[in-house]
């Protein structure tokens, strides 16, 4: 076998691994000066945590004193929104149709007025998601099914 083939074999076998090591080294250097690029320290608010199904972050924020009834800005794209919207975590959970998040929020202190509940119940009903509707019902404290126009929206 010619020397050229041998060199070609060595390059073929090891070049991707060498590139990988260089990238990893670069990432570690970057991490030591400007934060780890693979583990960015992204700060979410409660509504964004709900919108991204980050239940642990929701719990952390609520434990840290954030108000689960508050309105928080949600960046575009997280809840099918084209522009930034200011919504509650509960609205975010309903927007992405996650019954377990709705349960968690009611358990963690979300309280609704009759009008707020009726609007959210109507939005949930439009999803035809039985689990989600049942979860929202738990926050209605015995209120009857509201009369929905079908035009209720989250924002």
């Amino acid at each position: 076998m010619s020397r050229a083939w041998r060199v070609a074999f060595v390059v073929a076998a090891v070049a991707p691994a060498v590139v990988l090591v260089c990238v990893e080294f670069g990432v570690l250097v970057w991490a030591s000066v400007a934060g780890h690029p693979r583990w960015p320290d992204e700060h979410l608010n409660l509504s964004e945590a709900a919108a991204t199904r980050d239940t642990a972050e929701m719990v952390r924020l609520i434990d840290g004193g954030d108000d689960p009834n508050g309105h928080y800005p949600v960046r575009p794209g997280l809840v099918d929104n084209n522009a930034e919207v200011h919504i509650t975590p509960l609205e975010a959970a309903i927007a992405i149709r996650r019954a377990e998040l709705v349960d968690l929020l009611f358990k963690d202190g979300v309280r609704l007025t009759a009008d707020e509940w009726a609007r959210l119940r109507c939005v949930a009903a439009m999803s035809d998601d039985e689990e989600l509707i049942a979860a929202v019902d738990k926050g209605g404290s015995g209120q009857r099914d509201p009369s929905c126009t079908g035009r209720e929206t989250l924002w």
Partner: peptide, 12 residues
């Protein structure tokens, strides 16, 4: 210990 370690959601 688990909850205090923030991890970026797969959505991002």
């Amino acid at each position: 210990a688990a909850v205090e370690k923030r991890v970026l959601a797969p959505r991002f």
